[in-house]
């Protein structure tokens, strides 16, 4: 029992923190704990959760992808152009998702075969992709789509928005994929000890490429939701979204060095960040502070992660 508690200490801490934040916000604002506001929070965090789940896999594999936000933007722009060109909604969405998968896979290929540091590489790719989005659109948003497409962003089944259902599906599929299937096990080993994987006769390159392709697919789904919800494809969409995703993943207990992951932790962290954002908005706090808080939480999470590694090393000594 004690061992299990220790294993999930970060998630338990996050849950407790969320409960406390919720209690405090309920005291400060009578609007906070209403179904309408809870629904707002869920809708606001849904697409962030999808990207964070994709990022969880990538960070578990021992690297990061700073181009995820730019993939969101380019996929949105391409989908918008396809829709304006008269392509049916399913085909345009498929084109966007395939583009996301392809861009992610290229990132994986470059990281695996060039040996360039992933941080620099994905930062460079991010700049290039954002540049392409701006060049295509001339810096202006592409607007006005048909109701069929807009439904993907704001449509509901009962009381629940489709984006929330998409996010729930991502979480539900991710858990078995990460912890109960070979693919996830190898992705974790890629972060745990890539050499162990190679010396066991497993092609590390395949897992590097596919894990980035998965993040690309997640970014493309986010692009569908954002573009449909805003009824507009913005070349600046997804800006800094990867920072939020990385913050949530590390806060949730996934090791920044790879090898260990927590899908539940990521989901909890995305939720708590969403609650904080919502609470600050309700209290009319400037969005600048929200950015500051995200950065601060990332720093604290990395420190906690480092302390954990230090403790393990001390235990072995």
């Amino acid at each position: 029992m004690k061992k299990q508690l220790g294993k999930y200490s970060q998630q338990i801490f996050l849950f407790a923190a969320m409960v406390i934040v919720c209690i405090l916000l309920t005291i400060r604002s009578e609007y906070f704990f209403t179904w309408k506001n809870i629904r707002n929070i869920l809708e606001a965090v849904s697409y962030r959760l999808i990207l964070a789940i994709g990022m969880t896999f990538v960070i578990a594999s021992g690297v990061m992808d700073l181009s995820a936000g730019s993939i969101v933007s380019l996929c949105g722009v391409i989908m918008a152009l396809a829709l304006h060109g008269g392509m049916p909604v399913p085909a345009a969405v498929a084109a966007g998702v395939l583009l996301g998968i392809a861009l992610g896979a290229v990132n994986g290929l470059l990281i695996h075969y060039t040996g360039i540091n992933f941080f620099i590489l994905t930062l460079a790719v991010s700049g290039m992709l954002r540049g392409i989005s701006l060049m295509i659109t001339d810096g202006k948003p592409i607007t006005k789509f048909g109701q069929d497409f807009i439904y993907l962003g704001i449509g509901r089944i009962g009381e629940i928005q489709l984006s929330v259902l998409f996010a729930a599906c991502f979480v539900l599929v991710s858990v078995p994929l990460m912890f109960h299937m070979k693919w996830g096990g190898y992705v974790l080993s890629l972060g745990g000890n890539r050499e162990a994987l190679v010396k066991s006769g497993i092609r590390a390159g395949f897992y590097r490429v596919t894990v980035h392709a998965l993040l690309g697919a997640a970014a493309a789904v986010v692009a569908v939701i954002i573009t449909a919800r805003l009824n507009s494809a913005e070349p600046n969409a997804g800006m800094n979204m990867e920072l939020d995703a990385i913050t949530a993943v590390v806060m949730g207990g996934t090791s920044i060095k790879g090898g260990k992951a927590s899908i539940a932790g990521t989901a909890l962290a995305v939720l708590i960040l969403g609650v904080i954002r919502n609470g600050l908005t309700l209290m009319s706090v400037s969005s600048d502070y929200q950015q500051w808080i995200t950065g601060f939480l990332l720093l604290v999470s990395v420190l906690i992660s480092e302390i954990k590694v230090y403790k393990i090393k001390a235990l072995i000594k």
Binding site: H180, M181, L188, L197, K199, S200, G259
Partner: peptide, 25 residues
């Protein structure tokens, strides 16, 4: 060549995992 984040079974069976229903570990 051990994956430090996996347990004993995860390392013993790395690359030759036992499956149930053909897909699940």
């Amino acid at each position: 060549a051990l994956d430090n984040c996996k347990d004993c079974a995860g390392n013993i069976f790395l690359g030759r995992e036992l499956l149930k229903f053909g897909i699940f570990l």
